[in-house]
């Protein structure tokens, strides 16, 4: 079936199968490869994108269900080469190792910070509970999200 997907403020007309996940369509039909595919079972969070601002596992959402909603992927966060404060903080705080969980991690943080720009450490940790990182032990990721929150608050 043909659907229109509003992805990163741009409308893509794509032909999808009913069983195809949003993840498959974003990666292989729209061609945005920043969103990763880690497990296909909603277990790791590497595929996290925003659906109307809310973090979702794109592997668990049928692509057709995303029609009429705003999809934001990691590529949509950086405008005119200007990084989102979360991206900036990940770079500054050294919150990256292999990088495979990074896009999903940033999208989960984005979803949380857009609703709460003054999160506690526990709220930060809870916001990324659905995202596994095997490399960093999460320490610098939590630092980065906390620093991003501060930047966002300063800008408010």
């Amino acid at each position: 079936m043909k659907i229109e997907l509003n992805t990163n403020e741009r409308i893509y007309e794509v032909d999808v199968e009913p069983y195809e996940s949003l993840n498959q369509v974003i990666r292989h039909k729209i061609g945005l490869m920043g969103t990763k595919r880690g497990c296909d079972t909603g277990g790791c969070g590497a595929c996290t994108v925003l659906l109307d601002g809310q973090a979702v596992y794109s592997c668990m959402v049928p692509a057709a269900r995303a029609e009429g909603k705003k999809v934001t992927t990691i590529e949509g966060l950086c405008n005119n080469n200007k990084l989102d404060p979360i991206q900036d903080a990940f770079v500054e705080k050294g919150a990256i190792q292999c990088g495979y969980c990074t896009p999903g991690m940033i999208m989960s943080a984005k979803s949380m910070l857009s609703q709460n720009s003054a999160p506690s450490e526990k709220e930060i940790k809870d916001s990324i509970a659905g995202n596994i990182c095997r490399c960093t032990g999460y320490v610098k990721i939590v630092d980065a999200i906390s620093a991003a929150a501060e930047t966002i608050r300063e800008g408010e």
Binding site: G34, E75, Q87, I96, G99, I106
Partner: peptide, 14 residues
């Protein structure tokens, strides 16, 4: 800062 940081936070790293 890591040389691979920017490609990784923007989804550019392939």
């Amino acid at each position: 800062k890591r040389v691979d940081a920017l490609p990784k936070v923007t989804g550019e790293a392939s």
